[in-house]
Amino acid sequence: ARLLHGSIFAKVIEGLRELVNEATWECSGNGITLQAMDSSHVALVSLVMRSEGFESYRCDRNMSLGISLVSMSKVLKTMGKDDSLTIRVNDDSDSIIIAMESQNQDKFADYELRLMDLDSEHLGIPDTDYSCAIKMPSSEFSRICRDMSIMGDSVLICTTKEGVKFSAKGDLGQGSIRLVQTTNIEKEEEAVIIEMKEAVALTFAVRYLSMFCKAAPLSPQVGLSLSEDTPLMCEFKIAEMGHVRFYLAPKIED
């Protein structure tokens, strides 16, 4: 699998590695997918990178590759920001080859990472017709998670026709941030758009939302999909290629 802009792949790994330290990559002719839960089984990430999004892609037989994302992140940090990236696994090999090439083809770096035997648990994610779908700048969402974490461990997300409100309370007191729907959309990237069938009010652990925000550099906008008594879906699109979707189980009243 070859990417002209290897930085896209580095951003994907950076977006996942805090939530899941290691994961099984499923490779087929259609592309690369991954599904993994965090160690406490509260959150899940689902990644799709379609074959047509790569400069070139070939997969002769389906493969499951157990990879340490922490190690892969370290290797990818050595990459120049404009480098292209090729990922290769040879038949019967127990390692993955990560090759980087500088833009003017005067530097070539190759790394081999040993593959791991991982027990993976796969969950069926039902198609959900969410009550509420919010789109907002991903930088804004990152900032809200950071700001709410000052006040408490949990954030309550409430939606109305007018907007969406994030609030948190704790020993210090409480705080809230309300975003109003953008009425005059000039730049789509900066817009806050709320599609609502029913109002929702759900509580989530802000620690996980903050981990999801590590994927924010992938996309200028984030999608949040919510329904009562259903895990939140937080989506970052990977330009033309696929997406990273995070799911988070809500907190419920004791």
Binding site: H41, V42, L123, T203, P231, A249
Partner: peptide, 14 residues
């Protein structure tokens, strides 16, 4: 006080 639910409570094992 609220408690954290787990994800397999909502999604089934494949």
């Amino acid at each position: 006080p609220s408690i954290q639910n787990s994800l397999p409570f909502y999604f089934e094992n494949d």
